[in-house]
């Protein structure tokens, strides 16, 4: 339950921290936008790790919850005129509530039944967003969303906003870390390993599942809200079912059940299409095939590869 402590890991984290602070100075306009998208995805995928990585709930609704957060903050900051500093936390609270309300009835389902029910939620979200023109703007979406600002300073450029996102990711990671090593995190992992034994060990299984699902919605809500204030515009396409699948793929490719894996997967999968840009039309074929190969040959994700390499040169974590 106590987080494993390792001086090398702490030193590595510190170096990564300093590098991350200096990074925007070396990256061009388009590169920083992709980097920002990676940070936002990382938050959504850390959230997904609660539901799927820990509690084993197969959800195809994560993009829908990202959409809830994005639309909530968009509506609050345009129609209601709230400053982002207020509308973002409200969007997170609202998305969490939606997550709990959706999760409570759905989490009795298991395996592919749950996958299909959550898929239904995500598809329904897009249908509503596309058609509820008066509130959600239809296919045109909502534009004119203000950039993030604190009194006296606006984070209007991608380079400035990078630091906001970076701070949000650090905070999200820290909180996820605390939950993982608390009794709540242990119970989530226990539920996936053996649901019956978890109940017999005094854990309310339904409650823990709803908590894991709501947490993943909360993180998705934060990711969506941060996304809306970066692009200043939201439309249904960004929250389609295919994005939910990408989030799950990020988690599995990084290494499910691990916060670092979630972040690594989000960064790798966000940059992968950029690296394969020269392949033109063929790149989605290569991308899909590559994902499939990783699934088949590295079921524990790319992070397991790194761990194996680390063990080989003798710097084991635990």
């Amino acid at each position: 339950m106590r987080p494993p402590r390792n001086r090398l890991a702490v030193a590595a984290a510190l170096v990564a921290f300093l590098l991350a602070l200096a990074l925007p100075a070396f990256v061009s306009g388009y590169g920083i936008r992709i980097l920002n998208l990676a940070l936002i995805s990382a938050i959504a995928v850390i959230g997904l790790n609660f539901a799927f990585g820990y509690a084993g709930l197969i959800t195809l609704a994560q993009a829908g919850f990202v959409g809830c957060g994005a639309y909530l903050t968009a509506i609050l900051s345009t129609t209601a005129g709230l400053p982002p500093l207020l509308s973002i936390p409200l969007a997170v609270v609202g998305t969490t509530a939606i997550g709990a309300a959706v999760g409570l009835p759905m989490l009795r389902l298991k395996g592919h039944y749950l996958a299909l029910a959550t898929l239904g939620f995500n598809v329904s979200f897009v249908i509503v967003a596309t058609n509820w023109k008066s509130v959600m703007g239809g296919t045109d979406g909502i534009s004119g969303i203000p950039s993030f600002a604190v009194p006296g300073f606006a984070f209007a450029t991608d380079h400035r906003y990078y630091y906001v996102l970076w701070l949000a990711l650090a905070l999200a990671t820290g909180i996820a870390w605390r939950i993982r090593y608390s009794h709540i995190g242990l119970a989530m992992i226990a539920v996936r390993d053996d649901e019956i034994a978890t109940g017999a060990a005094s854990v309310g299984v339904t409650r823990i599942k709803v908590q894991a699902f709501s947490l993943s919605a909360a993180y998705a809500g934060l990711a969506g809200a941060l996304f809306a204030h970066m692009t200043n515009f939201v439309a249904p396409d960004d929250f389609a079912l295919s994005h939910s699948i990408i989030y799950l793929a990020m988690l599995i490719i990084g290494g499910e059940g691990s916060i670092l894996g979630a972040i690594a997967g989000a960064v790798i999968v966000t940059f992968m299409p950029e690296l394969m840009r020269d392949l033109g039309q063929a790149y989605m074929i290569i991308f899909g095939s590559l994902m499939l190969l990783i699934l088949i040959f590295l079921p524990k994700g790319l992070l397991s590869l790194a761990a194996m390499a680390a063990r080989r040169i003798g710097i084991s974590g635990r």
Binding site: H183, I184, L186, A187, A190, A197, A201, S202, V203, Q211
Partner: peptide, 25 residues
Amino acid sequence: GRLFHRLTVIENVLVGAHHRLPQSV
């Protein structure tokens, strides 16, 4: 025997005391 295989020995034991702790995230 039904244990939680992704958890350590002490973590397995701690799950047994879940109801003694506050239940909120």
